[in-house]
């Protein structure tokens, strides 16, 4: 890697797999369950969180030496809140329909544990460039799971991907539907998202047994 040193590259690749915020640290589950019924919403959510986390990490990192430790949580909250409001306004302006699908969950990015977690654990103790990479990496790890879950839920639940009818038309009975296939309504309900995340966790830990926790 010419662009990034080995140590910096790890900041991005680690959260994608062996230190994934959702499947390993089990943070940010709520939004992974709530908005993954459609792939499009998953992608927008992933991008939004990435913007908030990367910029927020840089801002906190720049201020890390002047924030009094007693009020640091409040300062962090102000930073996230400001960024989330900006993201929310941008979505409302340029993707109104999508922002309605995501509804309250854009606002709830504030409560996404991953964000406060990275501010506390990383940005407060590292320089801006490394904090930026850490934000990108963790948001990418989060987004990766969201997109996988969204892919399966939309494909099996609605028979579409990003709105395109990839399996045929359920009303006209074309494609797969002609031979009796039907959409799985359970996939559109949140419990199934939990089960899909569970299956990802299962596969990941079977591949890399070092990740299994001791009891």
């Amino acid at each position: 890697m010419g662009l990034l040193s080995k140590k910096d590259a790890k900041l991005i690749t680690d959260p994608l797999a062996d230190n994934n915020p959702i499947t390993i640290q089990v943070l940010g589950i709520c939004s992974a369950l709530a908005i993954t019924a459609e792939l499009k919403a998953s992608i927008v959510m992933a991008v939004s969180v990435m913007a908030v986390l990367a910029i927020g990490n840089v801002v906190i990192s720049l201020m890390r030496n002047i924030i009094p430790s007693k009020i640091r949580i409040i300062v962090q909250l102000v930073v996230v809140a400001a960024l989330v409001i900006i993201v929310d306004q941008v979505l409302k302006a340029f993707a109104y329909e999508l922002s309605k699908t995501l509804s309250v969950f854009v606002g709830l990015i504030i409560t996404n544990c991953i964000i406060m977690g990275r501010f506390e654990a990383f940005a407060l103790a590292n320089k801006p460039w490394r904090s930026f990479l850490d934000g990108i990496g963790n948001a990418a790890g989060y987004g990766l799971i969201l997109i996988i879950v969204g892919f399966f839920r939309e494909l099996l639940g609605s028979g579409t991907l990003l709105g395109f009818k990839v399996l045929g038309d359920p009303i006209e009975k074309t494609g797969l539907y002609a031979i009796g296939y039907e959409n799985n309504g359970f996939m559109l309900l949140s419990p199934m998202a939990l089960i899909v995340v569970g299956i990802i966790i299962w596969i990941q830990r079977t591949k890399n047994t070092a990740l299994i926790e001791d009891h």
């Binding site: 039907e182 799985n184 309504g185 359970f186 996939m187 309900l189």
Partner: peptide
């Protein structure tokens, strides 16, 4: 329960 929630029409 899976059948019930997945394929309610059936």
């Amino acid at each position: 329960a899976f059948l019930f929630f997945a394929y309610p029409t059936w």
